[in-house]
Design a protein around this nucleic acid. Sequence first.
DNA 1: TTAATTTGACCAAC
DNA 2: GTTGGTCAAATTAA
Length: 274
Amino acid sequence: MEDFLGENPHKKLIKELVEGKRFAVQLQSLLKQPNESVLADELIRKIWGSFTQAITVLNSLGNSDNSLTQSQIEEVDQPNSGSELKKKKKEKQDRRGCYKRRKTSGSWMRESETMNDGCAWRKYGQKKILNSKYPRCYYRCTHKYDQECRATKQVQIIQKNPIMYHTTYFGNHTCNSIKIPKHTYNSQFNHAMVNHSDSTVLKEEEEEESKGQSDNASSVVDSNLWQDFMPSSPSAHDSTLAANYNAAYYEEIISSRDMEDLAKFGEIEAIEFC
DNA sequence: TTAATTTGACCAAC
DNA sequence: GTTGGTCAAATTAA
């Protein structure tokens, strides 16, 4: 297999993923201490960077439909100038409805009490869906054009009382769109506050619901922010359980298998758990 | 003024 | 012919 940017891609992939996990462990420890939000912000950025790198490496492997070309990856690393963006936008004009219907492969779903996942989304459409009580809303990453991020999601209310959203994600974020909480962490991991307001999907529905749910909204938002970093097990999609991740969980996800892989390459030093 | 949302149109897939 | 995903002009909010 060819080297990726001068490094074995398998090795680099594992390295990035394990580094991401290591930063997460450090962050978890940090959040137990008060007044450490600045360091926490920095760690979140590192985690984000590691996963973004990992995605980039994955894209460099194979020729699946989900892979970006090398030139596209380079575009992500080196955002377009304004004139190039305008040119690209112009090329996209008069192409309404020109699309390939999505396949469900390469997507993942989540059900939660909020739409908030800590990322910046822009709504671009809403549709009444056949045999569905509520419309489906379509979101793309806010940085679709400035960072060529192709992540999209579809959000649909599946029930009320309590309100539940069914969200389907397509594609990974290749941008830095995650909204870092600004000095609003509480001492407990599961109470980090996110100053990100949801866009107004189904405003009336939400306003109605918010009357009775505003008190617990922040903790729900917190757990959802972290779900993006968690494995896609069913339990991780349960917002209540997700809010209760703890140090033991992190020790579990940084498994011995990771260590074996790393030992194979002899590149990463041992990780100490807090 | 800029950015985000709404909404009707478009069209490939079914 | 119907449905669902996307675009982009118009509208609204910050």
